[in-house]
C-alpha cells in the first residue's frame, strides 16, 4: 500500500469514527429529551371572568399563578414561581407584596424585585379570552408588567 493511500484511508477512517461518536452523543442527548412532557399543561383555562373578585389577587395553587382583577385596568396574571430558585411566593395583603419563603426575596405588587437575592422580577404571562368565554392563560408567553386584558 502506498503511503499516500494509507494516509487518505486513515484520515477518512478517523474522521468517520469521530463523526460517529459525535452523532451518537447527539442521539443520546436527543433520546434523553422527552418528545412528550407528561406534566401540568402550560396553556390552560382558569374559568370565567366572573369567578374572580376585584381587589387582592386570587392564588391558583395547582397552576401556581396569581390572577389580578382591577375595575379600570382589567385582568393580569403573574407566575407565582420565584425567579431565584423556583419556590412558590405568597402574597401578603398587609403590605401588598409577594414574599418568597425560601431565601427572603420580596416583590412589589407589580412583580418588581424590592429585596433579596431574586435576579429578575416575577414573570407576567399572557391571559386571553377563549371563545367559550373562559380566561385562557399561556405560561409559555411572557408579557410585560403593563399587559392587561379588558373584559
Amino acid at each position: 500500500m502506498k503511503r499516500r493511500t494509507f494516509l487518505n484511508w486513515g484520515t477518512a477512517g478517523l474522521g468517520t469514527l469521530w463523526a460517529a461518536i459525535g452523532v451518537s452523543l447527539g442521539a443520546v442527548v436527543r433520546f434523553l429529551t422527552p418528545s412528550v412532557y407528561y406534566e401540568p399543561p402550560r396553556n390552560f383555562k382558569i374559568g370565567t371572568p366572573a369567578d374572580f373578585p376585584f381587589g387582592p389577587p386570587t392564588f391558583l395553587a395547582d397552576e401556581k399563578i396569581f390572577v389580578f382583577r382591577d375595575k379600570e385596568k382589567g385582568f393580569a396574571v403573574a407566575s407565582a414561581v420565584c425567579t431565584h430558585l423556583g419556590c412558590t411566593v405568597q402574597y401578603f395583603t398587609s403590605d401588598r407584596r409577594f414574599h418568597c419563603p425560601c431565601h427572603g426575596s420580596v416583590f412589589a405588587s407589580d412583580g418588581a424585585v424590592l429585596h433579596g437575592p431574586a435576579p429578575r422580577p416575577l414573570e407576567w404571562v399572557e391571559v386571553t379570552l377563549a371563545r367559550d368565554g373562559q380566561l385562557r392563560v399561556d405560561k409559555n408567553k411572557v408579557v410585560s408588567a403593563s399587559y392587561r386584558l379588558m373584559v
Binding site: A61, K64, L85, C87, T88, P101, C102, H103, G104, P117
Partner: peptide, 23 residues
C-alpha cells in the same frame, strides 16, 4: 408543588451552597 415549606432547604451537604446562593 403548590405549597412551599418555609424555609425550604436543600439537603444539608448542599446548604453551604444554598447559603452562598442566598447572597
Amino acid at each position: 408543588p403548590a405549597k412551599t415549606p418555609n424555609p425550604a432547604k436543600a439537603p444539608w451537604y448542599f446548604l453551604g451552597l444554598q447559603e452562598m446562593v442566598s447572597h
